[in-house]
Amino acid sequence: MPLDTISTYAQTLLRQDGRRWNELRRITASISTQPSSDGSSLLTMGNTMVLCTVTGPREGNRRGQRDNTNATVETEINVASFAQMDRRRRVRNDKRIQELQSTVSSAFQSHLFTHLYPRSTISISLHVLSLDGALLVACLNAASLALVDAGIPMPSILAAISSGSVTPTDDSSTRPEPILDLNNVEEQELPFLSIATVSGHPGSEDKVSVLTMESRCQIGGANSKLESMMATGVDGCKQVRRKMEDVIRKHGAKVLQGRK
């Protein structure tokens, strides 16, 4: 059985795990998983599992770096050694992890209403327990849920998804087709991007908050991949956001029921 997507996709229109082009993997999430922290969440997207705890806003530890008008968002991402098929000891100064941390921090720094908590620090701690693609995406989603749980005000819920592009045959004249939510194998084979959106003003379109791509693809021309990937991604984010809202509502209902 071939282990790549490209060779069989044209005939079957199904990916290796049997999904269609726009099917998301199974997403499960729960919030307030750790009541002793300010906010917490556990999110799985397929086989990718991320646990997030949020602390804050609280007084920061470092004296010099305090912003007098806004809260500072700090992120720490920790990929467990047992997260991938090969046991991999984490490298402390992994540049890729640092870049991901910086992406998550800046995404929420501009998204949250940080002006309400000047001079304080909001710390996001992400633990990747199992990794099967969608690393940045799962981190953003888990952090988003945990921040909602922590009661930090935000204009809308940030949701992320990855989207890629598959060219069905070697014939360069066929249009490339977008696919949604890539797993690890697909990410290694195909170009893909991670995109996160936030809801726009009521009645207007969603706005893109994060857009990162580590692979290469053609932007313009007849076989442009980028536009279709982005459009699919924005739609995919909507689906993810609905799922997250569902989870939060269920949790809220449970809390209220407990109080009655």
Binding site: Q34, P35, S36, S37, N47, M49, L51, A80, S81, F82, A83, Q84, M85, H127, L129, S130, D132
Partner: peptide, 22 residues
């Protein structure tokens, strides 16, 4: 609890401490 390991456990106390072992 973990998919890619030979064995795993997730243990928590009621005071919020948790440990995950793979």
């Amino acid at each position: 609890v973990l998919p890619a390991v030979n064995g795993s456990a997730h243990v928590g106390f009621s005071d919020g401490r948790e440990a995950i072992v793979g």
